[in-house]
Write a protein that binds this DNA or RNA. Structure first.
Lengths: 350, 350
DNA sequence: CTGAAAGCGCTAACAT
DNA sequence: ATGTTAGCGCTTTCAG
């Protein structure tokens, strides 16, 4: 009497124990094994049986238990993706490229975030590997020894992405940041700039930014020049910091004629500052960033930058994993993409 | 030496059976059960035995199999988080709040992205529930019937976030977007603006943006006013679109004195356009966005906006899940946060 | 086409 | 403090 559900509440009472194949089996009068076959579309099952099972499963609201399934079949449709951050716009774009491809292959992306810490990366990898994924994609080539050992021992495809300046555990897909820095330096020098400053982030573990700066300085050095002034920031809005740092840098070094920024947000801040101060860009001073983020499209002037091929990197990496899973042993691949310079309106035409 | 892999050629992954507890057991001479205890820090184990096990596990590079562990213990330290997008800056911030709290409780965040599609949300939820997570956090209150049924039947804590204008499956944490729109309208009216336009995104499934506009219009209506002109955009850089749409809107309706934007990026684009055109902001025209994203800190003028309490929402939602797991049945909670108005410099002082 | 039996690798619950 | 015994819910394998 009191147990009777009210007419207005046709929803099934949440079961105390999650449903199992057996429940569907009993409800449909079909053996567990055949139910399993129907639910996985595997093997031949007669149409009437099939319908009975599907109906019962839907009525009950059965959701299969992948934990049991994975244990029994020794197969998991998960691919781990390890990146430093989600707030950097750049990484969601890589992820997009990855999941575009993985989805087609029926693989599920699992994301892990390291906050640019190798120690945390190690934990995240351990956690991921404990779920026995079909593959791992990890940003960067710098890892702890333990992380590298884990990855090597996992016996699954591993793709390190975004950078090719180093030795991969298995495969790698990315650009040379050393070369990117070098190319930007050459472009700047060709345009006639000579007194060059740098603004970056205080991230000791952002190895890609570090490599860009190294390549940049190497190219300047070959031309007999150096980076005359540099500043690094830590935390806060990158756009705002770009403004402040540009102001501070130009105050200290009024004769700089170019500022190379480690990313587009800093560069955008610098650009806004200069325009507000009535400083002639790119005449009096030139600016460049890195990444070609979408934001720069809406700025008063198009910031010079470089395409970091994020989407493409994601896609190619995912293809390696998907192919590896399809039986084709595609390990040990090295794919280097070409980062194009987008000169925009903040570098003088040569 | 014939086995030596040529560079560039697919080198086969060393065939290896993943390590099991038994391997560690044999290597250390300790029973599987005790090894398991050591690795989980559970039960009393003598220090010498403990060390032997730890050493063996490390030597072998053993990574436990959580699939088996979860099946046996009927416990999974995973919490599913379902959000529409990762490129909207806003969602990574919610995620940050969530994982801050979950990490402390030893829970792992698993992210699913719906691309603002209810059909895809349903798939993502199904996929997640099949891993039997300890809880689910999902953005928004609008779901397919099947999704709602799944969530209700899962028998785990479910928290719907970011919105409180509706009926939750279980708990909800968010702000009233209806109220947010209304409050902004009141602020604008108090400041004396009367000819008001709106710019938004063409997202039929962004229910929160829709509710804000509804609340906004309701408040205008009560004051005997209406939104005189509106435009919606689709795809592309939001900042750039904000510029273009503002230009177009002001061209068509030169006598507008305020533009309310469905988000800060659009508003920022509008602001940049106005400043470039020498239009007096906030004198000639006022502007407002929504979300209080970090970006607006670096703009030439601080855009008026509203704090959407993202971090806090994430934290509170995660706390409900963590508490629910700790045995305290905290279901059916409703937490409404207060979205503060940040008037910035783009609304006249009353 | 369908079913019965035997695990997958681990842990809960008891022994000892 | 350590070992033994049963499964967890599913899939593989092999028989009907």
């Amino acid at each position: 009497m009191a147990e009777q559900p009210k007419p207005g509440q046709p929803r099934p009472i949440p079961p105390r124990r999650p449903l199992t194949l057996r429940d569907v089996s009993e409800r449909s009068g079909v053996s567990e094994m055949t139910v399993s076959r129907v639910l996985r579309n595997r093997g031949d099952v007669s149409e009437p049986t099939r319908q009975k099972v599907l109906l019962a499963a839907r009525d009950l609201g059965y959701v299969p238990n992948r934990i049991a399934g994975a244990l029994a079949s020794q197969r998991v449709n998960l691919v781990g993706v390890v990146i430093p951050s989600l707030s950097n716009q750049v990484f969601p774009e890589v992820l997009q490229g990855i999941s575009d491809v993985l989805e087609e292959s029926g693989l599920q992306t699992v994301i892990g975030v390291t906050r640019y810490s190798l120690a945390r990366e190690e934990e995240v990898l351990y956690e991921m590997l404990s779920w026995r994924p079909s593959g791992i994609i990890v940003a960067g080539l710098e890892h702890s020894d333990a992380s590298r050992a884990m990855l090597a021992a996992a016996g699954i495809p591993v793709v390190e992405i975004m950078d090719v300046n180093g030795t991969p555990v298995d495969s790698m897909v990315g650009i040379s940041h050393h070369l990117a820095g070098r190319r930007m330096a050459q472009t700047i020098l060709t345009a006639g700039y000579r007194r060059i400053g740098f603004l970056g982030t205080k991230m000791p573990d952002d190895h890609r930014a570090r490599k860009r700066l190294e390549g940049f300085e190497a190219a300047l050095c070959e031309a007999g020049l150096t980076v005359e002034a540099r500043d690094f920031y830590d935390g806060g809005s990158a756009l705002q910091k770009g403004r402040e740092m540009t102001a501070a840098l130009l105050q200290r070094h009024p004769d700089l004629d170019f500022i190379y920024c480690s990313n587009d947000m800093i560069g955008a801040g610098g650009l806004l500052h200069c325009l507000e101060q009535g400083i002639d860009v790119p005449g009096r001073i030139g600016l460049a960033g890195f990444n070609a983020i979408e934001l720069i499209q809406g700025l008063p002037r198009r910031l010079a930058t470089m395409d970091s091929c994020r989407r493409e990197i994601g896609r190619r990496a995912a293809e390696i994993i998907a192919a590896g899973r399809a039986g084709q042993a595609r390990s040990g691949q090295v794919i280097e993409l070409e980062p194009a310079i987008l000169p925009g309106d903040t570098i003088r035409r040569a």
